[in-house]
Every structure is written in structure tokens, then in C-alpha cells.
Write a protein that binds this DNA or RNA. Sequence first.
DNA 1: TAAATATATGAACATGTATTCATATATTGG
DNA 2: CCAATATATGAATACATGTTCATATATTTA
Lengths: 121, 121
Amino acid sequence: MNQSVERGICLDTCTNDELVVLVKGQMPGSDYLAELSNLFKALGDFTRIRILNALLTSELCVCDLVSILEMNQSAISHQLRVLRSSKIVKHRKEGRNVYYSLDDNHVHQMIRQGLDHVLEG
Amino acid sequence: MNQSVERGICLDTCTNDELVVLVKGQMPGSDYLAELSNLFKALGDFTRIRILNALLTSELCVCDLVSILEMNQSAISHQLRVLRSSKIVKHRKEGRNVYYSLDDNHVHQMIRQGLDHVLEG
DNA sequence: TAAATATATGAACATGTATTCATATATTGG
DNA sequence: CCAATATATGAATACATGTTCATATATTTA
């Protein structure tokens, strides 16, 4: 279906070109696209991706993550906050520990799919 | 399989805890995780996500994208460069136009999966 | 209740990044 | 060859973001 669309050569900026109108019409709303880019942005950091890969294996508390990533506790907590506010992880408190886990199965799949991509490379 | 792993309560930082060792062992190598986070980072920008959503419908030249996103040509070109260097889009030249399209099917699927996620909310 | 431990958070700092402006390059048409 | 058009790119700027340090909060234990 992709390549069957007729192209219109742009003169200056082709604001009313048929294809442009078509593509514009098929784009999801800005709200969704903003949400989507924010989701990817939250996944797009080395520390956070390592946290999430760890959580792929098991629910973990903050100090587990400190040991696994060999990083500052503060740095970990700050990044967990980002992941929490993006609803990517959920947490539960048990005594003085706070256990984090993946909130959603979609994210699980997105990470795995991304890994497939880079492993093939 | 997740919750069946025995937890070890951390005292200070539990460097030798069994679970920590297990999780560490199951993490992909740093190189892959770095690549993965870079891939997500490339997807994690509003402008770039809009470009990619447009390319989901059809191959497009730069000035098409300028019209579709209603943005500065320079801004678009700069972002296309980011997508190119991340191997997310490919390009072909035809006369004075340069046509961009998605390079890889994985990315296609990742975007769709991400959209599913945000559309469900 | 005091000390110890686990976690969260604000401020500061350094670094990264998106956009704009000006300009360069390349291609086509006259 | 010259003018016009499409695209790319470097520099500048403003803004976002990750880490560290210091410290606050909450919970357990002695």
C-alpha cells in the first residue's frame, strides 16, 4: 500500500499536495504522538534501560538495583522516579524496602523487540 | 518465573546476594544495552516521532515533511540526520529531491506497539 | 527513644540536544 | 552559465537532563 501512493513534486513548500494531505490525515493526534515520544524518551537512557532489563528478570528493591548497576543510590532513585512518572514501573513498599517491577506488558514487549533489533543489527 | 526467585534482604549494599548475581548474569552486554537505549533515544523526540509516523504511510521527500509537520526545513533535515545515523530511516536521491523511508521492519513494529500502548492508556 | 538503614528529593553543575539563522552544495531549467 | 529550488550543515542559543552531594523522611531494631 505504501509505494502505490502518487508523488507530487514540491514547488517551494507543497502545502496542498494530495499526498501531504493524505499523510496528515493518517497521523495520530498530537496528544498521542507526544505521549508516544515521551514513552520512548523514558526508555532512551542507558541507566534506565539497565534498570528495566534487570526488572525483566525479577522484581527488585532499590538497593538490589544499586548493587546490580553499581551506581549511586541517589542516581537510581532519580531514574526510578522518571520510570514511575511514565507509568513504566510500579512499586510496592515492604518494611523499609521499596520493590519495583514492570508496570505493563507492552513495555516488556517493546524492550524485547528493541533487543531483537539490536541483537540482529 | 519472575516471583519464584528468592529475595535477599539487603544490608547496606547487598553485593553478593544470590538474586543480584542472577540478575547480573542475565543482563545483556553493555554494548547491546547502550545500542538499545540509543535506539529508544532516537525515537524519543516529538519531531522525530512525527516524521516516523508520516513515513509509516509513505516514502516522503524533505519538503513533503516540511509541509506535513509545518516546520522549518533546517529542523527537519537535522532530525532526519539523527534518524539516518541511527539507521532508522534510509534515503535515496532523485533529482534534487531526497526521499526518506523507514529502514527496518523492527522499528515499524516498535512504533506500532508503542502506539497501541498509548492508545490504550 | 535513639541509632541504623532504605529510600526520596532538592540544589548545583556539567553535559546533551532541539531549533533557528546563515550559508554551502547540488541539481534543474532557462 | 545563471537563477531557482531542494537539501544539508555549522554555529549559536536556549532549554532539558543525568549525576552528585547533602539532607530529609520513614521504618526497623536495640
